[in-house]
Computed example of a mutant assay.
Amino acid sequence: MPDAQLRPEPFIQQTAPAALEDLRARLRATRWPDTPEDAGWSLGTDLDYLRELVTYWAEDFDWPAQEARLARLPRFRVPLGGLGIHFVHARATAPTTPALPLVLSHGWPDSFWRYSKVVPLLTDPGAHGGDPADAFDVVVPDMPGYGYSDRPAGPPLDSVAVAGLWAELMTVLGYERFGAAGGDVGSHVSRYLGLDHPDRVVAVHRTDGGLPVFTGDPADLTQEERSWIDGAAAWGAVEGAYAAIHRTKPQTAAFGLTDSPAGLAAWIVEKLRSWSDSDGDIERSFTKDEILTNITLYWLTGTIGSSMRMYRANAAIPPAQHARRVEVPSGFSLFPGEPVLPPRAWLERTTNMVRLTEPARGGHFAAFEEPEAYAQELRDFFRPYRTGTAAD
């Protein structure tokens, strides 16, 4: 039964005009670096594109309109583990069968924003070309230190601890049994929900297998798995500088990223481009308004530093935790733009994998890039696990 002492309170955020004026003043005063001729995106964020984006942010971006759009989602806050946790709780619209409760966990560099397009597709599938029987009650929390959730004052929480908070949140909302899904850091959280709460989690869906951590004898791996582990290491050597900073010295980077909105945009937009299925054209996957909504959430909440610190916490998770196999039914939708795609053998080794699909389009932010396809992946995967999950 729900804990009567924990009462979610409706949450509506309205940004003070002074905060937006300060943001615009900072954007207009940006001190730009030099860049080698024709560098483009080869050294990181492209100077010409960022100038264009920052000008739009300062002069044309309508944050109040985007804030009002996000406010159409039913949003709440509740105290959990000594922290105020912000979350979306959208109940199914007139399902023909009991709706399946589903907790969606986001990653970095984003927040509940990642799932803002897909929520109505999941709660009311009948209105979006789906079967009304596939409706979900959707819960999308902001992780501690992200979005509108509180920032931990002490050590950051790791994915194991966040999974425990999400299990508590689902209890507060009256859900004894539920599904879990996510990507990026949210993939890890969903994994630990399945590992630590197998009596409550009916199934786990993920859009990646995480970066490989293997503590056994390499001779036990298939050649495909060994090649993948080598490829992931090569990817990390070329693309993983951000993660090394997050794991080791996040506070150093946080000073500049918290003070400069242009710097914050450069840090985030390069990942949106390189991890999406954009073929190098970021606005093939995201409009300027969509990019800036995500970045403005980080700016106004001041959470870039606290979000990065979660990498440090996750790096300290003991190897024995990584070696545990998820025994609850697990499904994977591997979208083609995902940076590090695991082989089937690895997924079968580490989980009770019952379904693996490879959608035609989409990347690391699949729920935002291809919301219709992502919603259908969740409907198809969770369909066999819908019995006995109604709220108390």
Score class of each variant (00 low, 15 high):
G183N: 09
P336H: 00
V328F: 04
D124N: 09
V204E: 05
Q14F: 00
A320S: 12
A25G: 09
E52M: 15
I317C: 02
A375M: 02
A233K: 07
D46E: 14
P329S: 01
W228S: 15
K249T: 14
D277I: 00
G302F: 14
H86V: 01
F255G: 11
H188I: 05
G107R: 03
Q66V: 09
V201G: 04
V340A: 02
M143P: 14
F286K: 10
Q251Y: 03
D34I: 06
E37M: 11
R7N: 15
T15E: 04
R77H: 02
E270N: 01
G305M: 03
R344Y: 09
F368P: 03
T97N: 09
L6Y: 11
F381W: 08
A92E: 08
D137M: 08
G363T: 00
S105P: 13
V88T: 11
E21M: 02
W41C: 00
L70G: 14
R312M: 06
A4K: 14
Y192E: 05
L356Y: 08
Q321E: 04
I291A: 12
D124T: 03
G84H: 14
A219K: 10
K271E: 00
A153R: 14
S149I: 05
A68Q: 12
D279S: 10
T303A: 11
R72E: 10
I304A: 06
V213L: 09
P17F: 01
A360I: 00
K117R: 15
E67W: 09
S159P: 13
G40M: 04
V118E: 05
G331N: 11
A92C: 06
G81M: 09
H106E: 06
E67T: 03
N314Q: 10
D208T: 10
A18S: 02
A237Y: 05
G231S: 08
D34Y: 10
T222N: 11
N352W: 01
M308Y: 03
D34M: 09
G154M: 06
S276H: 03
R349L: 13
L73T: 11
T171D: 15
Y374K: 01
R273L: 01
L221K: 09
R383A: 12
E372M: 13
W235L: 00
D158T: 03
D279P: 08
W57S: 05
E290P: 15
Y115K: 10
F382T: 10
A58V: 06
F214M: 14
P198V: 01
L341I: 02
A373L: 03
R69K: 12
R151Q: 13
T351H: 01
V78I: 11
R273S: 00
K249E: 14
S330H: 14
V140A: 09
S278W: 00
